Simulated scan of single mutants.
Amino acid sequence: MSVEALLDATRAGLAYERLRMDAASRNIASSNVPLRTGDAARVWQAPAAFDPQLGAALETAPASTRAVHDPNHPLADAKGMVTYPAVDMVHEMTNLMTATRSYEANVRSFNLLRSMMLRALEIGAK
């Protein structure tokens, strides 16, 4: 495997883990944003098939909702219920932590490969 292929694999890993972190942080941020009447709940997710050459964007998927009784809220329905996306905070925090750890591991491998390349250049210059 060439050095460039190793660098490309590391870059792809960094890009994918960044997407996973973005999806989890958006889901956490939107967990307490009420839905307007008729709006469907959506959650963000990283694409299942990731191609670093094509790039990727976050995808949305349908989600369930949760209702909270708050008759004073401007978006409350006739029964006083406000609808929010049902975001599983434990799942999203776990995704966020594992994506962060994976991102850090990719950074470490990229830095290690870079230092090995620099060391090889130093040896070759002697």
Rank of each mutant, 00 (worst) to 15 (best):
M93E: 10
L58F: 06
V68R: 04
Y84S: 00
L6Q: 09
R18I: 08
A125W: 11
P47I: 08
S64P: 05
R108G: 14
E122K: 08
V87I: 08
L112R: 13
A48N: 13
V33A: 11
R18A: 10
V82I: 06
T65I: 09
M89W: 10
V68F: 02
S102K: 03
A67H: 04
V43K: 02
S25M: 03
L113S: 05
L75C: 04
P85L: 04
S115I: 11
G80E: 05
I123K: 14
T37S: 15
N106L: 12
S30D: 14
V3C: 14
Y16I: 09
P52R: 03
Q45A: 09
F50L: 02
L113N: 06
A67E: 06
M81G: 06
M116G: 13
G124D: 09
D70V: 00
N111W: 03
M97N: 12
I28A: 02
E59D: 13
A78K: 11
A41P: 02
S31I: 04
L75I: 05
R42S: 05
A57I: 12
M117Q: 15
N32D: 12
A15G: 10
A76D: 06
L19S: 00
Q53I: 09
W44G: 00
L14P: 01
S31A: 08
A46Y: 00
V43Q: 04
A12W: 02
E17R: 10
E59Q: 14
F110H: 07
P62T: 07
V107W: 08
N32C: 11
Q53S: 08
D51H: 12
T65E: 04
G38W: 02
A49E: 15
G55N: 03
R114W: 03
T10E: 07
L96R: 05
A57Q: 10
V90K: 06
L118V: 15
P52Y: 07
R108M: 15
V68H: 03
Y84E: 00
S25N: 03
H73T: 03
D22R: 00
T60A: 07
S109A: 15
L35A: 08
N106C: 15
T100R: 12
N32G: 13
R26K: 03
S2D: 09
L14D: 01
R119T: 13
T100A: 12
N27C: 00
M1Y: 12
S2K: 04
D51N: 15
L118Y: 12
K126S: 10
P71Y: 05
V43T: 05
V87H: 01
A5L: 13
F50Q: 01
V43E: 02
L6S: 15
R36V: 10
R119F: 12
